[in-house]
Amino acid sequence: MAVRFGVLGCSSVARRRSIPALVSHPDATLAAVASRDPEKAKAFAAEFGCDAAGYDELLTRDDIDAVYVPLPTALHVPWGLKVLAAGKHLLLEKPSATSAAGARELVRAATEQDLVLRENFTFLHHPQHATVARLLAEGRLGQLRSFSAAFCFPPLPAADIRYDAALGGGSLLDAGVYPIRAAQLLLGDDLTVVGSSLRVDGRTGVDVAGHALLVSAAGVLVDVKFGFEHTYGSSYTLWGSTARLTLDKAFTPAATWQPVLRIEEQDHTEEFVLATGHQFLGAVASFTAAVLAGRGAGHAEEAAGLRSMVRTMELVEDVVRLANRLPA
């Protein structure tokens, strides 16, 4: 039995990454794609061998079990709620919402319907992070003192939706959520934002770069950097009392990339070349497994993931609330 998907929104990431992963997985099939532009939906449908549909039409189809939503962030909650109200499982592009209240609303709806709701942070499904977590748990770094992470890339075309405040644009919601979520993954959800700065474009009103300082419940110092005005960078470092671990290409590695994990001690350095990993395929596999196993939002593992989803948005709100705003 395969999970029958519909896709609500014909975005670039859907075409390049998520839909190819979806149609290649043996437990998933693609029934239909929808777009505000009928011609765009037809082009996607022809490329991936499925039907084209309108948004509302897609949600009424009996041959769809789950819907993947790669719409702009500001549309995640209204359309996500419609997907859940239609009785469909929901795979929602990150971040889940533009506010913690919106994320909580999605969780309530999924719980009431006992449906699977996942936020599509694909990097969480790359095996390199499990290796890091294992080394940390084994005490390879001694007592962890700090965690630093960054996700930055060059400026986008002027018309890109990530410069549109009304659609949930800005570097914090698009890039900053990655290092924040990585801190949650490795240190737990009990993080506190203690300070932040945002560089804001006066023309668009969106943040184009930022830096936030947090601290974990265990006293680990955390700093995260993000932005749209840098050369590309995607990495994190864990610094302990006896060693420091660094992982490059932490958030968006190609499926063919072999991660290199570097551990540095005072007089010794080791490098571990890890196995490749297809994180988009891993995200699809994990989601379809949950659906086929009947693990709705109330299941313990699913509920834990949803708590982290909401916590991410609470931390984002704290970064904004505490931010020192600088002109870009």
Rank of each mutant, 00 (worst) to 15 (best):
A328T: 02
G298Q: 15
P78I: 11
P154N: 11
T131V: 14
S18C: 11
R295Q: 14
T204R: 05
A165V: 11
Q258R: 15
C152E: 14
V7H: 07
L213E: 15
G49C: 02
L213G: 00
S216K: 09
L261E: 12
H211D: 04
L124D: 00
E138F: 06
T204L: 05
T60G: 05
R295V: 03
Q266M: 13
G205P: 06
G80L: 13
A149R: 05
S308P: 06
H211T: 00
E317W: 03
R36Q: 08
A283V: 02
R162K: 11
M309R: 08
F251I: 01
A166I: 12
L214W: 04
M313T: 04
V222G: 00
A150C: 09
A304L: 10
N324Q: 13
F287D: 06
F123Q: 03
D114E: 15
K249E: 15
V67W: 12
L198W: 00
R61E: 10
A255F: 07
A254K: 14
R244K: 14
A285C: 09
L84T: 03
L214C: 04
S24K: 07
A323M: 10
T288W: 08
A183K: 09
L187Q: 05
T288E: 12
R16K: 13
Q113W: 06
L124I: 01
Q143Y: 07
F147M: 10
D37H: 03
K42D: 15
G233M: 15
K40R: 14
V222I: 13
L136C: 06
D37P: 00
E105F: 00
A130Y: 01
V319N: 06
G240Y: 05
F272E: 12
R15M: 09
W239N: 11
S241M: 06
G168D: 11
H125C: 03
R162F: 13
V83A: 04
P157C: 07
T60K: 13
Y163P: 03
A32V: 03
T256G: 09
P259S: 04
L261S: 08
V83T: 07
S235P: 04
E302H: 04
V260C: 12
M1R: 11
L124N: 00
E47R: 14
H25N: 03
V177I: 14
A297C: 10
P72L: 04
G188F: 05
L173G: 02
L245R: 01
Y68P: 04
A130H: 08
A175T: 03
V200T: 02
G168H: 06
L90R: 03
F280A: 06
A166R: 15
D63L: 09
